[in-house]
C-alpha cells in the first residue's frame, strides 16, 4: 500500500492545531469554555469528576467554522483550497475571534447552559461533582477519530494529567465521544489511567427513580447516538429514564443499535452530504409523528438541528435540557 501525501484539507489542520495548542478544537480560552460553571463553585477535587470537554459549549462555533469554510470555497466546497492550513489562515484570517463573533448570543447561551443543566441534574440526584474549570481540556476525540495518531499520543498525556489532578475515581462524560475515547483509547496511550468512565445517561439511569415527573403533552422520539448505542451499548437506559419521568416514547424505524447516523461525523469535510444524511434522519424521526426529538450527544443535537427543514414544528433537544425541565417545575 502506497503512503499518501499528507496534504490534508485545511479545516482538519485548523482543528488539529487548535486542539494541540489550545486544548480545544476552536482555540477558545479555558475560562470561556468553563464560564457556565462560575455560579456553581464546583470543587477541583473529588471522587466524581464532571467532564464536559467543552463539547456542548463549542458546538455553535464549530457550525460557524463549517459555514465559514463552506462559504469561503465556492468552487467545490472544502477541497479546492488544499494549500495548507497555515496559508489559509494567513490569507483569509480565519480565527477564533471572528468565528466567535459570528455566533448568535442565544445559541451561545443555549449550548453553554446544557453543561450547567447537566451538573444541576446530577447534583439534585445526589452526586457530588468536582470540575477542572478553566483547566479542563477537550478529550481529543477528534484527533483520534481523524487519524492524528502522533498528536493524540502526546495530547492524551496532557489531558490525563489534568484529569488526575482532580483525584477522582470516576469520570462522568456528557458526550459519548469523550466517554468512548477515554474508555477505549486512553488506556492504550496512557500507562496509568485508573478511571472508571461513565456517561451522564448512565448516572441518571441509576437514580432515575428520584427524577421529578415531567408533564408534557408532547410526544417524544429518541434518536440514539451511534457511539452511545453501538460502542457504549447504552440504549434501554434512555427509554427507562423517560419512562420514570412519565413520558411515553415512540420508536423510529431504525432505533437502538440499528440507529441511523445524524451525519455529524463528516460535517467538517463533506458538509453537503452530511446535511443530506441529517435531513433524512430527521425525516425518519418525524415519521413517528412525535413532536419532540431527544438525543444524548452534542454532535447529534447539532447535526439533526441543521438537518431540519425551515417550516418544521418538531423540536430537537438534548436529554439534559428535557430532564432539567422537571427540576424547574
Amino acid at each position: 500500500m502506497m503512503a499518501a501525501e499528507t496534504k490534508l484539507p485545511p479545516v482538519l489542520e485548523i482543528i488539529r492545531g487548535n486542539i494541540v495548542k489550545h486544548g480545544n478544537p476552536l482555540a477558545m480560552k479555558g475560562s470561556e469554555v468553563a464560564a457556565w460553571a462560575n455560579a456553581l463553585k464546583l470543587p477541583e477535587h473529588g471522587d466524581l469528576l464532571f467532564y464536559t470537554g467543552g463539547e456542548y459549549q463549542l458546538l455553535p462555533f464549530i457550525d460557524s467554522l463549517v459555514s465559514t469554510m463552506t462559504h469561503m470555497d465556492q468552487g467545490s466546497k472544502v477541497f479546492s483550497l488544499m494549500m495548507g492550513a497555515r496559508n489559509i489562515i494567513n490569507k483569509t484570517g480565519i480565527n477564533a475571534e471572528k468565528i466567535y463573533a459570528s455566533v448568535l448570543a442565544k445559541d451561545r447561551e443555549r449550548f453553554n447552559s446544557i453543561s450547567y443543566k447537566a451538573a444541576i441534574i446530577l447534583q439534585k440526584l445526589g452526586y457530588d461533582l468536582c470540575y477542572a474549570g478553566k483547566k479542563e481540556l477537550y478529550s481529543g476525540a477528534l484527533l483520534s477519530e481523524l487519524g492524528f495518531c502522533e498528536d493524540m499520543e502526546s495530547y492524551a498525556l496532557k489531558v490525563a494529567e489534568v484529569l488526575k489532578q482532580s483525584r477522582a475515581k470516576t469520570i462522568v462524560c456528557l458526550s459519548p465521544h469523550a466517554a468512548e475515547v477515554f474508555k477505549f483509547v486512553y488506556p492504550k496511550l496512557v500507562k496509568d489511567f485508573p478511571f472508571e468512565i461513565r456517561t451522564f445517561v448512565d448516572l441518571v439511569w441509576e437514580k432515575r427513580h428520584r427524577l421529578p415527573a415531567i408533564k408534557t403533552d408532547k410526544t417524544v422520539v429518541v434518536h440514539d447516538s451511534c457511539r452511545l448505542a453501538r460502542e457504549l451499548e447504552i440504549t434501554e437506559e434512555l427509554r427507562d429514564i423517560l419512562q420514570s419521568v412519565g413520558v411515553p416514547v415512540r420508536e423510529a424505524m431504525s432505533n437502538r443499535q440499528w440507529t441511523t447516523c445524524c451525519g455529524g461525523p463528516n460535517k467538517l469535510l463533506f458538509p453537503d452530504v452530511s446535511h443530506t444524511v441529517a435531513t433524512r434522519r430527521v425525516e425518519e424521526l418525524e415519521e413517528t409523528g412525535a413532536d419532540l426529538i431527544l438525543t444524548s450527544c452534542p454532535y447529534c443535537l447539532s447535526a439533526l438541528q441543521g438537518g431540519q427543514g425551515k417550516d418544521t414544528k418538531t423540536v430537537i433537544e438534548d436529554l439534559i435540557e428535557f430532564l432539567f425541565r422537571g427540576f424547574e417545575a
Binding site: 499518501a4 481523524l146 451511534c226 460502542e231 441511523t260 461525523p265 463528516n266 469535510l269 463533506f270 444524511v277
Partner: peptide, 16 residues
C-alpha cells in the same frame, strides 16, 4: 491509499 483517502474520510464510522 491515495484513491482510498477520500473514501476513508467520507465514512461516518457510525458502525451500522
Amino acid at each position: 491509499l491515495e484513491k482510498a483517502a477520500p473514501l476513508v474520510f467520507t465514512c461516518l464510522r457510525c458502525g451500522r
